[in-house]
Design a protein around this nucleic acid. Sequence first.
DNA 1: ACTGGCACTCGCCAGAGCAGAGTGCCAAGC
DNA 2: GCTTGGCACTCTGCTCTGGCGAGTGCCAGT
Lengths: 340, 340
Amino acid sequence: MSLDDRKLEVLRAIVEDYVATQEPVGSKALVERHQLGVSPATVRNDMAVLEDEGYIRQPHTSAGRVPTDAGYRLFVDRLSRVKPLSPAERRAIERFLVGAVDLDDVVHRTVRLLAQLTRHVAVVQYPSLARSAVRHLELVPISTTRIMLVMIADTGRVEQRLVELPTPVPPGDVTELRRKVNEKLAGEKLADTPPLVQALVEESAPGRRSMMACLASVLLETLVERSEERLALAGTANLTRGSFLDFQGTLRPVLEALEEEVILLKLIGEVESSATRVRIGDENEIDNLRSTSVVSTGYGPGTTIVGGLGVLGPTRMDYPGTIATVRAVARYVGDLLAQN
Amino acid sequence: MSLDDRKLEVLRAIVEDYVATQEPVGSKALVERHQLGVSPATVRNDMAVLEDEGYIRQPHTSAGRVPTDAGYRLFVDRLSRVKPLSPAERRAIERFLVGAVDLDDVVHRTVRLLAQLTRHVAVVQYPSLARSAVRHLELVPISTTRIMLVMIADTGRVEQRLVELPTPVPPGDVTELRRKVNEKLAGEKLADTPPLVQALVEESAPGRRSMMACLASVLLETLVERSEERLALAGTANLTRGSFLDFQGTLRPVLEALEEEVILLKLIGEVESSATRVRIGDENEIDNLRSTSVVSTGYGPGTTIVGGLGVLGPTRMDYPGTIATVRAVARYVGDLLAQN
DNA sequence: ACTGGCACTCGCCAGAGCAGAGTGCCAAGC
DNA sequence: GCTTGGCACTCTGCTCTGGCGAGTGCCAGT
């Protein structure tokens, strides 16, 4: 059976009240707080239907109703509009982000900002190397058999790695090498570099072949294969908000999950478009996070996406507000990146 | 009055039992588990004295005794020997740390290792810039009015910063600039650089003066003034170990404190010698951490100290084991740094 | 199709009673 | 004088109980 408008209205009221009070909501309280124009008994009937359909449930026989994951899903998809941000929030975002001096700074400020505004745990992925292009490669001789490889990406990311050379190399050769490598790779998308690096090795003079191969392998490993995704995390203390009762059993696994970079990347790194993604409770693939919701989106200069960011909180969260905040922050960060 | 040997032995037994069981320990249980050679009644008398002296207390009238902060302090200072590490632990440390490719890698591996071995929250400070010397300064032209300043320290740390120049500068000048700057600063302790940087500005040709001043200010800000200390954190999930009852009220403030880099630096960054420092409960200056203990030490190549590392856990922790682990890890990391 | 009424279920709370752990003190013993 | 066994006392934690109240489902009436 399809749910008529009033039933949907009842569901919305339940979600809103439950999010606000954190307590199961009953039929009587519902008609008191919302102008539904019907009696509690009618609401009860609607609730019974909503429960049959799996959108709400009772924690125990004689308590109010609580939304299920499916209930939140329906709410998010069909019953809520994204809240416009308050001017205060807009100002907070701007104030927080101006004055960032480099990428590290931008990322750190962003993640703290997100945590503060949403009061959830915030995660920000550094611009992904896979989505970046090489701006410049620098080779710095440290000793005769060691050079420091510094890669500066167009997204502002800087990666460095020590290269141990098989044979000593005079500094002059390094200069020459730097020129060649940059000529070949500057401006290229990192994802496109492997064949170019390969070509570099093949084109190099026989005497330098082994050194070049060594450099090439570190280059490939650093930039592409072990393509290190980095991220920043903030607001774990927010996990203790709300009735810790709900969390008593779940706080531990959540904290554990948050320590695994791989997991976090899965959560916020899998962004292809700039669409906001909401994963509610059981929709999460990570078992430890089945009792949480994740709101994530991509960000980047203009319409391109270079990384993801988002927040993680209890399924019982203010979705419209959270979604609005996450989107707004992502847009601001994108603009900030576009300026460089 | 001075405490005789047996009373100290009783205190040691109380601490050890309480750490092991997490429950207040009574006189009867004590004589059963330890060969004290006296009766429970005698132990009770000793306990009464220990309580008068402030080393133990009763949570409530008819429960066993629990060590106070002062009791732990006495235990750590006079009643415990540092446990030698088990071969398994030694192997774990080695296995964990070999194969680290760069400083970031070393720090991340170390912090996870510490968290895993001690089962507490681990903190590792990156080698402090204040204690590093300049190995090389690299200037990379990004555009005509922007250069990327990359500083490589002898400790392996690499810092970068974008410099906006007031006037366009041809690439050739940058090469010259790089030579000059390195000549002046390479090998110098960062703390000693300010007058040298100043000299650089004064010595430079009048036409380049403004550009040089601009570069110098960023240089000073990055390397000395805003001397950015970085650190890594792991094992927050360990906070939920043990009876969360103790933590119910305290978990929140602890998590909050852990989010503040300034606080963490205070905890583990104030190291002058390689002596291990133990701060127990109220000895901590940070209010949020009055119910935790911190074991920290310095690390560095050879006998020099370049940074600090340590763990934070409940006051009720295995001090001998934790101290041993922290020291051992610090020594291994120091050795690792010495190799570079 | 909605509403008011009513019986029913069940979690929550406070109070009582009980068992157990642990203490402090005292008088006796080495 | 230190140590010991004994004993009365205190207090927590557990369980059981009954009463209360919130909330429901169902039914008959409009």
